[in-house]
Nucleic acid binder design. Sequence first.
DNA 1: CATCGTTGTGTTTGCACCAACATATCGTAT
DNA 2: ATACGATATGTTGGTGCAAACACAACGATG
Lengths: 139, 139
Amino acid sequence: MTKKADDAPGNIEPHVKLWFSSPRAEGVFGDGKWRLLQAIDREGSLRAATQALQISYRKAWGDLRKAEKFLGVRFIERRRGGAGGGEAYLTKDGRAWVAAYGRFRAKVEAAVEREFEAQIAGLQQPVPKETRRRKRTAK
Amino acid sequence: MTKKADDAPGNIEPHVKLWFSSPRAEGVFGDGKWRLLQAIDREGSLRAATQALQISYRKAWGDLRKAEKFLGVRFIERRRGGAGGGEAYLTKDGRAWVAAYGRFRAKVEAAVEREFEAQIAGLQQPVPKETRRRKRTAK
DNA sequence: CATCGTTGTGTTTGCACCAACATATCGTAT
DNA sequence: ATACGATATGTTGGTGCAAACACAACGATG
């Protein structure tokens, strides 16, 4: 129940975005692709994953292709046609990357929270002693 | 002289983007504003700072306004007119934020490097054998 | 062998963001 | 009192990326 002045000028929170780049391409892996792979693992198909994540199939497909191309890793195995029209599931490498990136991200996020408290939180005005902008004037 | 296969599909490096948000606005502070404040401190004016950083004055001005508004902090003191047309310099609060954010950023970046080595670097493929794309029945 | 749902891929539309432009205001120095 | 250079702010145009749209290929299964 944190219920402490939510509209004050202070009360900010840190955010972090992480991604990897190869010398030949920016953003070959990151939060988006990580979440996508997890969703594929859960849902059993790329299409279902994109629907679950509310992102466009077109982009997700392109992202995967890019990641696999520039990392030289096959993340998912795909099958067209067949029962259900097709499917997609994580390879062993895919699972390894998901797990490793999850650990990486968790550690970094922990550092963000910790250092935010240590370095930034102290700057927040404790009590801005009421905005001194007595602007008055009727009507 | 690190000369170890620079065009291989591996050899990726981590990137991080950090920013703070208030409940009422996204991105009220981050690397961009941090660099801007430093530049203002160095250059002595907002205009000179934007020229040094190669960013548009318009955007920098809007960014500063947004940050000061939603954080409730006065980062820079400005003076219009006068000798040289005007000037801008960091307030005490401004300097405190620059320093604190610098420490915050350095710590997080160190964690990124460390955890990248610990969690991700080991996944790199030695040689994934060239993408084999057999041309299909062309026309 | 027709159907169905998914993978795979090209094309177009929309939108968010930023650079660029335009102008007003300000205050000291001359 | 004029000029100058910087702050302050509205407006517009271009650009890149992502959503939306469209459609071909595939292959188990009935």
